[in-house]
Design a protein around this nucleic acid. Structure first.
Lengths: 145, 145
DNA sequence: AAATTATGCTTGATGATCTTGACCGAACTA
DNA sequence: TAGTTCGGTCAAGATCATCAAGCATAATTT
């Protein structure tokens, strides 16, 4: 499905999506129309979901973050899911197997803010919150092999 | 620190980082050199950490993912941290307060692969694994206000 | 086996975009 | 008030992306 050139292109773009086609094609060893066509196909196949920027939450004032595990009270599953989606400080959330139903990431500025957000959830779910102290692994790709 | 124009620029780029400077400056209502200068400063201030692409792990063959909570056995904390960093299938990991020491995200192709990876961790830590069934909140920015 | 088609590449021309430098005005500072 | 800084515009030359045409190779058909 993906060949070595595609993988090279992806690895370069992950680190610098703003690189010019010309420079990218130099690094890949193809002409720019070829690389352009490969990019088009990678997007078409949804391998590349989007071109985006990585923003530092700290720069936006969110100097704290937490992992929240959420177990809805009986009958509350859908309401809780909706509540999570409507809480903009929850910047990602997965629905998982096991006792915890949801595991989410929460960005916040102050403990007061954390408390407010958790209070809203606690009306309809049990929550378990762990404050993030550091991030030993920053977001990265799994092996492309 | 950030004004409305910066926030507009960020919101546009989060959705399409490949937009031309010309188009971006039209949407923002400034000339392109101005927007270019603002971009330079946003990068300089590390508000924008990088321009990157969002890759679909499924397209890379990683059709499964899991949240793993890791509690190192006594004395094993640093070894476990290193082990986590050296496990490329763990695509992000936070060190947190509470009983669990690390919470990570794991991308994998088969249950056998999951089993192998967890076996390696289990020699030095207790783990608790939840398979991801869906993602009610895809990665997004907290409010920029 | 020969002919055909499809795929993926290159080149070179053209038009669009980016960057640079010169300049301007508002807001702060001495 | 005069000077300085900051952030902006405009216009040019430099750079880049895209398109069409053509070529080579590999797979498919006859």
């Amino acid at each position: 499905m993906l060949d070595d050139l595609d993988r090279t292109i992806i690895e370069i773009l992950v680190h610098d999506a703003r690189i010019s086609l010309k420079e990218l094609s130099n690094q890949v060893g193809l002409s720019s129309p070829s690389v352009s066509e490969r990019l088009r196909r990678l997007e078409e196949k949804k391998v590349i979901r989007s071109f985006t920027i990585d923003i530092d939450p700290v720069a936006l004032g969110y100097s704290l973050s937490a992992i929240v595990r959420v177990r809805p009270l009986p009958g509350m599953l859908h309401i809780v899911e909706k509540l999570i989606q409507e809480t903009p400080e929850i910047t990602e959330c997965d629905k998982v197997t096991g006792d915890d139903c949801f595991v989410g990431k929460l960005q916040f500025r102050t403990m007061e803010q954390l408390d407010m957000i958790l209070d809203r959830l606690s009306e309809r779910a049990e929550t378990n919150t762990s404050i993030v102290k550091s991030s030993p692994v920053k977001r990265r790709l799994p092996p492309l092999s």
